[in-house]
Design a protein around this nucleic acid. Sequence first.
DNA 1: AATGAATGAGACTTCATTCAT
DNA 2: CATGAATGAAGTCTCATTCAT
Lengths: 209, 209, 209, 209
Amino acid sequence: METTKPGLTSGSGPATERGERTRRKLLSAAEGEFGEKGFHNASISSITQRAGVAQGTFYLYYRSKEEIFRALVEHMNRTMRRHLSEAIEGASNRAEAERIGLEAFLRFCRDHEDLFRIVMESQFVDPEAHRWYFQTLAGGYAERLRAAQAQGEVRTGDPYTQALALIGIAFFMGQRHRIWDDSPPIEQALETATNLIHRGLCPEPPPQG
Amino acid sequence: METTKPGLTSGSGPATERGERTRRKLLSAAEGEFGEKGFHNASISSITQRAGVAQGTFYLYYRSKEEIFRALVEHMNRTMRRHLSEAIEGASNRAEAERIGLEAFLRFCRDHEDLFRIVMESQFVDPEAHRWYFQTLAGGYAERLRAAQAQGEVRTGDPYTQALALIGIAFFMGQRHRIWDDSPPIEQALETATNLIHRGLCPEPPPQG
Amino acid sequence: METTKPGLTSGSGPATERGERTRRKLLSAAEGEFGEKGFHNASISSITQRAGVAQGTFYLYYRSKEEIFRALVEHMNRTMRRHLSEAIEGASNRAEAERIGLEAFLRFCRDHEDLFRIVMESQFVDPEAHRWYFQTLAGGYAERLRAAQAQGEVRTGDPYTQALALIGIAFFMGQRHRIWDDSPPIEQALETATNLIHRGLCPEPPPQG
Amino acid sequence: METTKPGLTSGSGPATERGERTRRKLLSAAEGEFGEKGFHNASISSITQRAGVAQGTFYLYYRSKEEIFRALVEHMNRTMRRHLSEAIEGASNRAEAERIGLEAFLRFCRDHEDLFRIVMESQFVDPEAHRWYFQTLAGGYAERLRAAQAQGEVRTGDPYTQALALIGIAFFMGQRHRIWDDSPPIEQALETATNLIHRGLCPEPPPQG
DNA sequence: AATGAATGAGACTTCATTCAT
DNA sequence: CATGAATGAAGTCTCATTCAT
């Protein structure tokens, strides 16, 4: 039935210029609403109020609360991947790319709290979209790791699992910075994490003399 | 209203033997219900049905839907920490403890899907309980890492951040095994992840000699 | 899914004495509401108001607007059949039974306008229930006609079709008396119709001399 | 507001050639939509889609959903009466006319399910139009019966009531063939019904002699 | 200690109709 | 003559919670 694969649905409805504007207003309003209240406590009527349109207008653009939520997950996917791609573009090696990428990620999370929360919550609202989100992300990441492995820049091992572990670290830290109040300055956390990512938990070998 | 700190509320209500039995039935029913349907789609009436008691009875033991959810998060916290402690008890060093701990964790997740899901969802249902859950966990973990650092078994760095990164890896992998369909055999994932945890992403140094 | 055969569903919900009373209040309120406004213009909230209960109470007894409607159709079926059976009980032959039955029917319609309307509307609201209603009715009727045919009291022919034709006459006349304003006194219409039923359109044969 | 008498409204709006074409498209689309879904489940937007025009266009031709529905009832009235008139034109006597008329009617119902349904539903949507429909029909029918009575071809009695009874039979049978699944071949039903109409329920008199 | 009927606020969604273009 | 985006009222249904027994 409703198994429209994510990545394919981009919202139907009115297609004129004005319509496009309205859709954007709705999407952005929904981002704020879902981000602040969570899916279940968000209400369509609140979304339309934020967007400055009548309630009925919503359904001209999205068939349901679920659908706009999914659209938001896709939006986040596109936005974040583009952002990260651009950030690590100039990195000269994998190690640097990791560091830059993690930092860009953490900053992105801080600047887009709502989207971040939506992606996390999608796990409970639309598992399919959630899976799609992370498989897409991990797939791209794994590709880079595989290439780096080929170049001898990364330790051998299943690149997909490696990607997952790294994404796990990133999201978990992103979360900490988002909802916990004990977060240290971002730079310090970054330092420790990057270190761990590069060298693992093992102590440095004593300098060889 | 009064935000009873987690760790303090353990459910009030009738205190007789029979009462105790009823509370346990409710808690266990709630575990299944929340685990299967998620907080918002779970219903008190379903919980009481599963527990085999009348609807009104619920409120003799828990003041609200939120309260029993929180009780479950605490339950999971206690259960998992005890389980992990026991698992890593016999480890002879930190490295081994990491490996055993991760494996125990993944198996625990697989065997207690409902609790796992509840903990993840607590982020959106009761952020305070969620924070408490992870701070407790990370605190204990960091303590062990600090000790290991002192012994030279673990790379220096903020142990709390290290703990967070490791927990991030573990939960992310747990999740993958729970809801994704692409999960490889647990052993293989374990191998790659453990490797990464120990040595990081850096390639092995070329054999010296 | 929802193909519960009519005649089987009698409404679930609370089963105590008090519950039974509430169900009856609801059913009777619904009868008035549907009868006056028709299915689509009737509202659950109006029904519950008439019944003097809260809106939510409705759903303790009936799963949907459709379900209570169907219950009403069944109610009408039982009530009318019992009523007609009793009316024609004392008839000494088929001809008399026809007359008495038609009269009883017309009076019943006049006294239960709401139920009558509901049965007619069921055609558009719940075709299955509608079909069931008339097949049941026609089945019983045909049985009697078949018996009468055997006794030589009724002209030969498919008794089911005969029953249908007679029911058609009755309902059509019932309708006329319900919603048209040109209805003549019931006795006169009865006279003509009975005549037609007995002898058909053919003119009486000239008295044989 | 102002209850324009049926028979008078035929739809206003643009009067050019093109306009006329659009009106016809709308009417025909509405016939399909109402026929398939019923008045309340039909939607203007669906009608305009079927007609291939924009939603707003609808209101250039009909003031409301009710108005186009009524227009359809009138359309059916005209169409059916013309059809029946033509069918019974060549009948040499009343008896034959009855038979031919009933058959033509049943076939017409089968071929115009949508219109038939609309007429039946008008009872609940627009009782005035419904009454008008049948009074018109019964009036013409009664006229013919009166004439036949004068010629001694039909049993005496109030011709209007007779007409009603006959229409009742016809519509009931039409319905059976439309929505029930137990309908026998049309010819057989016709045979029994015609017989009943002509001779009534009374058994044939024993052959004289 | 338990029951279970009753409550009522609130959510999503539909759709006839309007109006600026 | 036509368009189609926007409106907003209204309706069905769910469910956490209460309370009389």
